[in-house]
Design a protein around this nucleic acid. Sequence first.
DNA 1: CTGGTTTTGAACTGATCAATCCATAACAGC
DNA 2: GCTGTTATGGATTGATCAGTTCAAAACCAG
Lengths: 199, 199
Amino acid sequence: MARPRTFDEERALDAAMRTFWEKGYEATSTQDLCDATGLGRSSIYNTFKSKHDLFERALSRYLDAMTATHLAVLEEPGRSAAGRIRALLAQVIESEAECRAAAGRALGCLGVNTVVELGARDPAAAALLERDTARRLAALRAAVEAGRRDGSITSVRDPDALARFLNATVAGLRVSSQGGADRAALEAMAEIAMDALTR
Amino acid sequence: MARPRTFDEERALDAAMRTFWEKGYEATSTQDLCDATGLGRSSIYNTFKSKHDLFERALSRYLDAMTATHLAVLEEPGRSAAGRIRALLAQVIESEAECRAAAGRALGCLGVNTVVELGARDPAAAALLERDTARRLAALRAAVEAGRRDGSITSVRDPDALARFLNATVAGLRVSSQGGADRAALEAMAEIAMDALTR
DNA sequence: CTGGTTTTGAACTGATCAATCCATAACAGC
DNA sequence: GCTGTTATGGATTGATCAGTTCAAAACCAG
């Protein structure tokens, strides 16, 4: 009935996501997005409403994928809850190492980067991030409570607070990585964070 | 001998610093800097070489002031080393609360924000941040070692790693604050981080 | 092969970007 | 009150920004 698209929308979204991840929202121009996706301007504006709309979709995609991975690690069977949390931190460190290998430098987390760059100034992004944080905290809290039951977590602190601590630890690892900390340093930091759970 | 300036360079630098802090580097236009400082374009470019030069000086000023405050807290007499580290975290939380009261929202730390926004893409900023991080880590390490001596820190982990953990904790607190965590949540997180030192 | 529909590329829009220029203003030394 | 020097405001630069327009291209149903 009409001329078909010559590109895959998902792939384009992925390329845009990587660009926003590498450069941040403000520093990414629409030309950068054309270059990264291989699309022309018309195709981008025909498919997405605006740069901001494309960013929202890219961020949403990133958060869904990243958090899904983390939730999967937190629910992996055959380990103690503390072991699963430790595995989550290891996963974060691994992903930083992968970015460093692929992009030549640590990229941190698009979620953390967006909180810092756009913070409360972008209500749409803030809403996506808030929803994601709630999911992450719920999963971390559940893991902490499981750890209290299976004995792998002995801290008597409030599970909600422990969940927030762990989420902040992930952010701290990411920022440290962007600040130049190497893998060994990140691993040592993660070990120390785990100490807080078994106090 | 010539027409004198009608503004105070330090005050202008301070206003520029706050603007970069609130909006980030990329999102701050030279017009924003004119508005914030009250200076005309000519005066800004006559005093500073460029937007980037002004940013470097603002960042450097911020880092010096912030780190000086933190080092002072870490060296305050009359407390155990663990108590001084706890006071540092309290200071971070307090400064976040102050920003929230003054600017209406959490601003995080200009240093952390710059690591995330410009990361390794801006060599000049990266150099300033690296130097600052080294100073902070040295002070934290010294505090940890003092804590081991005075018995207030019982963790057997490497003091360097503990210092990095604490620095990451500060970053985690700041990002969490920007992400919407309230004061009580931040305080609970700090308490848990302290648990890792007395394990 | 034709008509209707969508995609695509390239030219283009007005706004805004960082930065410069220049005429004028304001001072200090003489 | 000159003269030399710097500061200042406003106009201006060329580049780039996000986003639009439009004609040509590409497809498919008939």
